[in-house]
Write a protein that binds this DNA or RNA. Structure first.
Length: 139
DNA sequence: GCCAACGTTGGC
DNA sequence: GCCAACGTTGGC
């Protein structure tokens, strides 16, 4: 299964806000990048992903699940832009910082490490397991 | 706050 | 269709 990583700045949309939405979830709107949109289009309901805080914290803080497939972004009339809905699954026991990812040679090819600007990105099964391990999450 | 990396726009 | 200019993101 393909896993994902969603990036957000804390002041824009934080993990706490995501958790507060509960089972209903929230649409991941505001993406105006074709690569990121294409990733969302290929997501399926039930897909899991990491939630990453960019800029200030720079760490993966929790696990989310896709709860609605791609649909038009409600924040724009431009029909090029679509987004999925996601809901919080659980927080990680310990956040995994960007530095930890950079320091682990097994994560050298992770998109998070190599393409800092892509806000929605794929995570391989191997990378998923390694991050869970670094987080002290038993899976 | 700066700057590198990247994506997008628009003139030709 | 190319490429320079510009805007944005995000790490440092």
């Amino acid at each position: 299964m393909t896993r994902w990583l969603f990036k957000s700045e804390v002041s824009t949309w934080s993990w706490d806000q995501q958790v507060a939405k509960g089972e209903v979830g929230e649409e991941w709107d505001g993406v105006r990048n074709y690569q990121a949109r294409n990733h969302m289009r290929s997501m399926k309901v039930g897909d899991l992903g990491f939630f990453y805080h960019s800029q200030k914290d720079k760490e993966i803080v929790g696990i989310i699940e896709v709860c609605a497939k791609a649909h038009p972004d409600s924040t724009t009339d431009d029909d090029r832009w679509e987004c999925v809905d996601i809901k919080a699954v659980r927080p990680l026991p310990h956040p995994v910082t960007l530095q930890m990812c950079k320091d682990d040679p097994r994560l050298a090819d992770m998109v998070l490490v190599n393409n800092t600007r892509l806000s929605v990105q794929p995570v391989t099964d191997e990378e998923w397991q390694i991050v869970l391990e670094l987080a002290g999450d038993q899976g």
